[in-house]
Amino acid sequence: MSAPHLAARGVACGRGRRPVLTGVDLAVRRGSRLALVGPNGAGKSTLLRVLAGLDAPHAGVVELDGRALRAVPARERARRLAVVSQHELPPADLQVRELVALGRLPHRSPWRSDDADGHADAALERLGLGHLAGRAVDHLSGGELRRVLVARALAQEAEVLLLDEPTNHLDLRHQHELLAAVRELGVTVVAAIHDLDLAGRYFDDVAVVDAGSVSAPAPAADVLTPALLADVFGVAAVRLQHPVTGRWHLVVDPEENAR
């Protein structure tokens, strides 16, 4: 067995000094996709920041290809690992193409600020955003901006993508298109996802972030059970089979008597 592509070993992390998660052990295989699910404030974003090397863990170590992430030089890390965070406010007067071309920064010398090789346009096309290339960033809707930021991560050509709620603000069709496009890339993905149906459909494994710890990643069908939903999210749910596709879906009903 080769080393996992991205791993957390005994990681404790938090915002500032306040610990949010402790004893996190994760091992993400090369080319696999892991969804982090859990209630608001459980620590999904905090964990992603530590996995991205943006924050140092309070304890434990994050490893990229078996090597401590802290020991990887920043430029090399940026070539191998791309992040789309949840709260990003790019300069309003930047053009979409220029914003996406920033993803090429780790691949070129800092004195070159042009994107002659067309990676930015290619990344935009890949997500069906080519028509936005010349637009000012402040003319994008919230959903368009999310997709543009994912395009920047694609332009970065990293083999690991860390996405913090990438489908937030997206309409139904674009949620599916975005995650399908990410799946097509064949790269390693760790994403915080709120929609459990999307988590089950586009990700190999699901890990539950709740009550200060992270569960061991396992296939969605094993993890996303009515019992778990009652326990973690405090909602009642039933599993129903889709009459046409035969897929199993969780249908949530917050009313107690729906059980």
Partner: peptide
């Protein structure tokens, strides 16, 4: 400044973004 202009552009997008793009 012209020599590090790419990094300056990265910083424009915010410190976290710049860091994740490998800017020191």
């Amino acid at each position: 400044l012209v020599a590090v202009r790419g990094w300056l552009d990265g910083l424009l997008a915010g410190a976290d973004v710049a860091r994740s793009l490998g800017v020191p």
